[in-house]
Design a protein around this nucleic acid. Structure first.
Lengths: 341, 341
DNA sequence: ATGAAAGCGCTAACAT
DNA sequence: ATGTTAGCGCTTTCAT
């Protein structure tokens, strides 16, 4: 039924191995037979069975993707499509495809990873998030299976290849910017507190503040998850304070949006009454109303480089771990005002 | 190095075929040996090589996903993560995984599809978009390869299984709602005009208008792609008109957001000066400022059902094409006002 | 209830 | 430069 390498071989009067070599463009086959074989392949509509190939040579040109538990709606964050676009773009150039397992809980996801690793379905893995004490990361590292991390490893930084922004510096810059505008009461709204981005950005902010001799009261630091409610709840809490902040740093555009909308519901105007800076520069931060001032972290690039270094690892057995830092850039739009007093 | 079925067989003192049967939970193996074999599998940390399995039995539990050309940033629309979440959820229950090829241009995507189909990497395909004259759809249909469509086929409706909303009715309802609020000058901003959703929604709106004896001038119908600019440009055009619309129907929340922000830039307030309804009820429509009145099309459900019917097709050779309509619901938030005059 | 053996479609020594 | 052959790890008749 399906046309195999044998059919091609027969029709082209060569051995199956020759056909195989033609597919691999092996230099030891004469141009003449190559042409002939290729012609037959086209005529017959031959396409290699990739399972058979993978089985025979113990490799597969596919990359596994691991997202944070999709049950958590974090997945709705446009960050992910965008990293994937970056990954996909590099992958395509190298003829790699992408594979996703389908768990929802942490346990299921872990099992999915084991299954695709041991089941030999993928040649390497990209972790699209980074959190503390990650079981999956532990497993991959122990297995010595090729993987790269988007974000920063919690421990063993020297043994793991990861692609990240300099979130510490980015947050520092953002804070300094706010300070330069005259802000002294600056609040921080983060995503999940076990995510490393959250930690790094908070650290950067705290240091910038300290350097400027500005205090960061505990009530100004909120970690409420990555979603809308995060922004909403944060605003509730912040606004009951005696000393209300004049500026807010949100670790994610989605949170920034939530803050924006919560503020507007309360009749507080941005940037007149309060300034906001968020992170990521997702498409919709520009559509926001008013458009968000945000740190462009080059999401696409994060994905692209991740794929690149992973393929490197897979194909060239590139084993020495690397740390790749993608540049960021503050995009000033309309949510920050100077404070005069 | 890797532990195979033979290793297990040896250690459990049975034949490889027996192990294979244990994996398949074949009833003709005694519970006793099943237990024994399973124990050995656990001890050895055995995991089946899925390539080998696929090769041997010519099936594979993975679903291919096809998105619209990711070069077009349509992919940034949170619609996709959400459908995928739905797909993933059902798929997981059936132990299916997901596979994506990585093309960017139409041509590349098409080749990717052929490769995964002929390469026997996937057992079926879900098309996450539906447009006119789609080459991929043609191909799959001709090959008689199991696939389902999210959206509506342009032709041969009776031969294709598709999951869709009743976009025509939804648009009618939305329009009637607007009419009931007193609006008579209603504009339509659609995504790509060769997408079938756009057509259906426009048709529904047009009919509702006709029924109410309200005209729909050509200048009121804009199709400018799915993105932010779409909303922006549309507002530009609409606002130069002599008879400016008092309400806008946008076929997508992202467009709705764009409109919102463009309007606010011009100092036009929503819903006081102009009303907006959009479609999809993506997470961020709720975060919008003001929160968007939108049609919840149950994106997750679209994905879930798509996966369900695809698996049905694959496993039970369910061949008779079906049309599944997912219910929609108008979610009234804060972008529509009554018009008094 | 279990084993032996052939074969899925391909690659990779090893020959020639 | 090309053919022969033996697997890759699994499933599945066909025996027993």
């Amino acid at each position: 039924m399906t046309v195999t390498i044998k059919d091609v071989a027969k029709k082209a009067n060569v051995a199956p191995s020759t056909v195989s070599r033609v597919i691999a463009d092996n230099p030891s086959i004469s141009e003449k037979t190559k042409r002939r074989v290729r012609k037959v392949m086209a005529e017959l509509g031959y396409h290699p069975n990739l399972n058979a190939r993978s089985l025979a040579n113990q490799t597969t040109k596919t990359i596994g993707l691991v997202m944070p538990s999709s049950a958590s709606k974090a997945f709705q964050n446009p960050f992910f499509p965008e990293v994937i676009r970056g990954i996909s773009s590099f992958a395509h150039g190298e003829e790699y495809s992408l594979y996703m397992s389908t768990g929802e809980t942490e346990e299921e996801i872990f099992n999915g990873v084991v299954k695709m690793v041991q089941g030999r379905q993928i040649g390497g893995i990209i972790l699209l998030y980074s959190r503390m004490n990650d079981r999956i990361l532990e497993y991959l590292h122990r297995q010595n299976f090729p993987f790269v991390l988007i974000g920063k490893p919690y421990e063993r930084k020297e043994e793991i290849t990861y692609i990240d922004n300099d979130n510490y510096v980015a947050a520092r810059e953002v804070t300094e910017y706010l300070i330069s505008l005259g802000h002294k009461r600056i609040a921080f709204i983060g995503g999940d507190s076990d995510l490393l981005v959250t930690k790094d950005r908070l650290a950067g902010m705290a240091d910038a503040l300290k350097l400027a001799d500005i205090s960061l009261p505990a009530e100004y630091v909120l970690n409420l998850g990555f979603l809308r409610e995060s922004g909403q709840k944060a605003v509730e809490e912040l606004m009951t304070l005696d000393a209300q902040p004049t500026a807010i740093i949100a670790t994610d555009d989605l949170i920034g949006l939530g803050v924006l909308s919560a503020l507007s519901e309360k009749g507080i105007s941005v940037p007149e009454d309060i300034s906001i800076v968020s992170f990521n520069n997702v498409l919709l931060s520009e559509i926001a109303n008013p458009p968000l001032t945000t740190v462009d972290v080059n999401i696409y690039q994060l994905g692209y480089e991740a794929a690149k270094y992973l393929v490197d690892k897979i194909e060239h057995c590139e084993t020495s771990p690397k740390c790749i830092i993608i540049p960021h850039k503050l995009v000033k739009r309309q949510t920050c005002n100077e404070i005069l007093k």
